[in-house]
Design a protein around this nucleic acid. Structure first.
Lengths: 148, 148
DNA sequence: GTATGTGCAAAGGCTTTGCACACGT
DNA sequence: ACGTGTGCAAAGCCTTTGCACATAC
């Protein structure tokens, strides 16, 4: 469920940060606003025909610095980006090593455990990221081992 | 504390998997055996003068497939690799966004929460990875915000 | 009208692949 | 001796940077 408020929130934050209203960045914001899970920079570039690849990367970097999106390192190939809710609600990911599918999930107990660690550590924790790797149910139905 | 047994365990597993005893791979195994936290492929290559970069990547790929090392996506730059204990003990990482320092930590409650999720999910979870990002105490002492 | 935003293209860094030679069995 | 393992070099991705033009204010 895309959070309708995020797009305005992000555009407002960008304006407050001194950014002008360029169209490339606005398109990136609009695309992320309607997305429920991480999107790679190249995927974003692919979907926004009129927007240059460099602008996509630049917009994502700016959005990340303002805390509006989070970069998630799902695979070794390309980084994913997804919006960060002001409320703090967020999810983590299950990544299928067979088909590459990425499935979001949320778990209060996990968040609580991470919160305890963050509080106790001699380290100022500002973000966290959990990735569970394995095989999704769709892939698990058939073969079990990689091709012989 | 390097686990002395891991090196032999890894070499044995490699032999059982049908690999011959080449020296490049053996050097990579020996280096990882004495390391307590993740090392990037390029760092390994840098430390093993006589070993070609390609051999480092190939060895790491083979070790990962055999479940002897785990690849961890710490930063967007380069992936880190660290040995995986047969016993299952492992740690996670705190990454300082300011200086890039990587600090390992372990937490039973966190493991328990992840275990519950893994069991309940309609997904065969074989590995997991937690990264906490923020600022380490050393960097936190001085400036608090990025340069104005 | 000026500074910012943008797109294109080239460069940069990590990783992978091809190929000939060396090494392990 | 045979086949695997290895090193070098080139190629392949993803990402970043430089520069000139368009755009927002």
């Amino acid at each position: 469920m895309p959070v309708a408020g995020w797009e305005d929130h992000a555009l407002g934050a960008l304006r407050e940060a001194g950014f002008r209203g360029g169209m490339a960045r606005r398109r990136v914001v609009a695309l992320l606003a309607h997305q429920d899970c991480a999107l790679t920079a190249l995927e974003i570039d692919r979907r926004l025909a009129a927007v240059g690849r460099a602008s996509v990367y630049r917009a994502l970097e700016q959005l990340e610095e303002l805390g509006l999106v989070q970069r998630v390192e799902l695979a070794g190939e390309a980084a994913g980006y997804e919006r960060l809710e002001p409320g703090g609600e967020h999810h983590h990911h299950l990544v299928c090593g067979r088909c590459g599918k990425v499935i979001p999930f949320a778990d209060p107990e996990l968040e609580r455990a991470i919160g305890s660690i963050s509080t106790g550590a001699d380290f100022d924790v500002s973000a966290h990221e959990v990735v569970l790797r394995g095989t999704c149910s769709t892939c698990g139905r058939g073969a079990q081992r990689k091709a012989a």
